[in-house]
Write a protein that binds this DNA or RNA. Sequence first.
DNA 1: GTAACACATTGACCCAGATCAAGGCCTGTC
DNA 2: GACAGGCCTTGATCTGGGTCAATGTGTTAC
Lengths: 241, 241
Amino acid sequence: MAANDGASAREIREALKHQYFVDGMSDAQRSRLVRGMTIQPFAAGQTLFHRGDIADTFFLVLAGRVKLYRLSIDGDEKIMGLVGSGESFGEGVLFMSTPRYPVSAQALEKSRIVAINRTEYLAELQYSFQTCMSVMCKLTARIERLLDEVESLTLRDSRYRVVNYLLELIPEPADGPVRLSLPTSKSAIAGRLAIRAETFSRTLRQLAENGTIVLCGGRTIEVPNPKLLRHALRTKSAQAS
Amino acid sequence: MAANDGASAREIREALKHQYFVDGMSDAQRSRLVRGMTIQPFAAGQTLFHRGDIADTFFLVLAGRVKLYRLSIDGDEKIMGLVGSGESFGEGVLFMSTPRYPVSAQALEKSRIVAINRTEYLAELQYSFQTCMSVMCKLTARIERLLDEVESLTLRDSRYRVVNYLLELIPEPADGPVRLSLPTSKSAIAGRLAIRAETFSRTLRQLAENGTIVLCGGRTIEVPNPKLLRHALRTKSAQAS
DNA sequence: GTAACACATTGACCCAGATCAAGGCCTGTC
DNA sequence: GACAGGCCTTGATCTGGGTCAATGTGTTAC
């Protein structure tokens, strides 16, 4: 079904509102884009595309969660990204001469996702320098994040990565006690942090043992003192008092 | 000294010719850019900038070699990039709201480098959609390279990274014997590959022992059969016959 | 309620690559 | 040519995190 009639068009239009990749586009441009879009439902575990597939679309998640990953020869998986509602992925293929997805993508939960046609999008992009700037900003930000990731993989240990991840989940300069819930399964998070589920579990336990965090069971974790957690970034694995 | 008079202006103009970031710009635009540029000499070991410095320029290397790196708290170094003549770096800062270099940069050899003013460049950029496309292509390519790096840091072992690096040094689909020379010191390359100099040395020795490469002393390495080396990517560390 | 399954935890052991410690080998300087 | 100061190599040992295996703990299905 085409999405350009009825409720789904409105939903897409709404979701697009705050997307960097249409920032600065006119209403007319947005309308032309929406006309070609469809909302696709995905079941938990369903694959969107494989690394190396020819790519003529990129994606915007309306609801659910998607994992982006690469596999080693012997089936080992590294999660390159976890994408939730309101976020987009696969924009990289817009600017490749032979567009192929550089990662595989799989829905982790039941999800609703909009596919955006590469050619149609590029046709609109060329009329808006502001949008180009917005896109270049985003690409640059992604490069910075990847630099951070390379750094944390090479100069930091697994404990740092776990603590850093938890800190990213804390909303803002919150300094009081925070209760947070992991956005997805612990094994997926471990994959994202390039450690095994076992190591993730042990690291959380260790943090809990010296009082930096409190494990509340399930996906819920309490941080009594974010400052202490932030300090744990600078600390070596040896436990503080 | 300003570069826009005499030989250096001509040299800059020549070097710019094949740079992606002026691709599609008019002669007038290029001239305006060159007017503000200067060639800066750097001695071996001299620092260009530190991570976190406020950034109002990015750079083009005319001659020499620059290392881009990050440091851990205890002085450990990860080389994020090695940049040689004809290559540019630091473009990321163009699109940051508060532009700061995300890495530190140091000349490895005596170098001649052009600094390009961020504001002046951005002023020209907005008149050329083609240049924007070229820039976005480049940023995307950088993201892909970083994804590859993350993959090789997490899903591959040190041997893979060494072999892969050597393969990148081989000019083209050369299938005959190739003699290549490492572009910089072995310890710097090791840093780039996120391994210790000791491990790099041992890995090269191991490759030499099973005949995949021949160590000719110094920075020279011979690859009798590139195909064999390419095959070594797929092989586990156990040595082949 | 309970069966079944997926995820999570815990313990015991292992290994690639780091670390530490000598030497060896260039390259430039006087 | 001999001395000094960088690299680079080689060997011995250590260790963070992986692997394997067993056990716990939800959660969905009926």
